[in-house]
């Protein structure tokens, strides 16, 4: 993920150590200077996210990363980035929570990522990779979307993706000098009117106008940027919805179920915001049961139920505290709902 950020033209990384995302920090410490970028191990997570604010305002592709408790500390900064219309990529290698929790993989940060987390009326594009190959693509996409819509983008991964290894092919690196210009950036006002980057508008009418304009951009994102992956859904009679690590585990469950004659399909939301409501709504007219599986007490399932309403049953299966469901665990839930 760190090398993918470099490939995407990221030249400013700021972070603070926390397990299980230290590999990103460690990699960036060695790699960023080698490509002429800036690496700072900040004094805190709060400092790191605000360094991103500064780098982004200066027009540089910038990233920070952390794990759940550290992401909580970054929330104020994320709200400010959103309010100042600044692009930034934030990787959350999520772990067991709440509180200090543990360092095992978990998905309990879905609400925080997709429903706010920080204060105010803002949205953040949230992308959930299931494999390391997907994480490479998604990190590169995150930088493009952040710049295109001038929004912070979170890559919501977890401790399993953060710790495991598998072979990948990196994409062609982007030359940061050839990226589209950012006429709003603070690059020195010689020969032009000064730009201002701020999250502050004292007059309610001004703030109303600025916020309304931003909401229009959010509607565009909802219209154009929904991404998801369907596996074996065309003839499915029952469907699992899962994102990230759980989605890849469920791919094996689909194979196991099919070999037993159960017509199981899988929907993997890739954008968690904007959430793929429409395809789930369509599927809810085809199947009787849509099971949501998460490593949480049930967070994404609220979005699934919003999409499905009462057109299909929407049971939930979750593992808490850093436990990872196995393909058989998920199959058991599927069988329970078939019989």
């Amino acid at each position: 993920m760190a090398e993918a950020a470099i490939c995407a033209g990221c030249r400013a990384y700021f972070g603070y150590p926390i397990t299980p995302q230290n590999e990103i920090l460690e990699y960036m410490a060695a790699r960023m200077p080698a490509v002429g970028g800036a690496f700072v191990q900040a004094e805190s997570e709060v400092a790191a996210i605000n360094m991103c604010y500064g780098a982004s305002a200066a027009g540089v592709r910038t990233m920070t990363s952390s794990s759940s408790p550290g992401i909580s500390l970054k929330m104020e900064g994320i709200s400010y980035l959103a309010a100042a219309d600044l692009p930034c990529v934030i990787i959350n290698v999520a772990r067991g929570g709440p509180g200090l929790g543990n360092i095992a993989p978990a998905q309990g940060d879905y609400f925080q990522a997709t429903k706010g987390g920080g204060h105010g009326d803002y949205r953040m594009i949230v992308l959930g990779p299931a494999t390391i190959a997907e994480a490479i693509e998604i990190v590169m996409l995150a930088f493009d979307l952040a710049d295109k819509y001038r929004v912070p983008v979170m890559v919501l991964s977890d401790g399993m993706l953060g710790q495991m290894m598998e072979p990948i092919k990196l994409a062609e690196p982007v030359d940061p000098g050839l990226l589209p210009a950012k006429p709003w950036a603070l690059t020195g006002a010689s020969g032009r009117r000064p730009n201002a980057v701020t999250s502050y508008a004292m007059d309610p009418r001004d703030l109303n106008r600025i916020n309304t304009k931003r909401q229009t951009r959010y509607r565009q994102i909802e219209e154009k940027e929904v991404r998801y992956r369907e596996t074996e859904t065309s003839d499915a009679t029952i469907v699992v919805v899962a994102y990230g690590t759980v989605a890849r585990i469920a791919r094996t469950t689909v194979k196991m179920a099919r070999s037993q004659g159960i017509k199981l399909g899988l929907v993997q939301p890739i954008t968690l915001w904007p959430f793929p409501y429409a395809p789930l709504r369509a599927l809810s007219n085809q199947v009787n049961t849509i099971i949501t599986v998460e490593m949480s007490a049930g967070q994404m399932v609220e979005d699934v139920r919003l999409a499905v309403c009462d057109r299909a049953e929407t049971p939930f299966y979750g593992e808490l505290g850093g436990l990872v469901p196995t393909p058989k665990d998920i199959l058991r839930e599927v069988q329970r709902n078939v019989s």
Partner: peptide
């Protein structure tokens, strides 16, 4: 392609 890296 490998689905689950977690094995029962």
């Amino acid at each position: 392609p490998i689905g689950s890296p977690v094995v029962d």
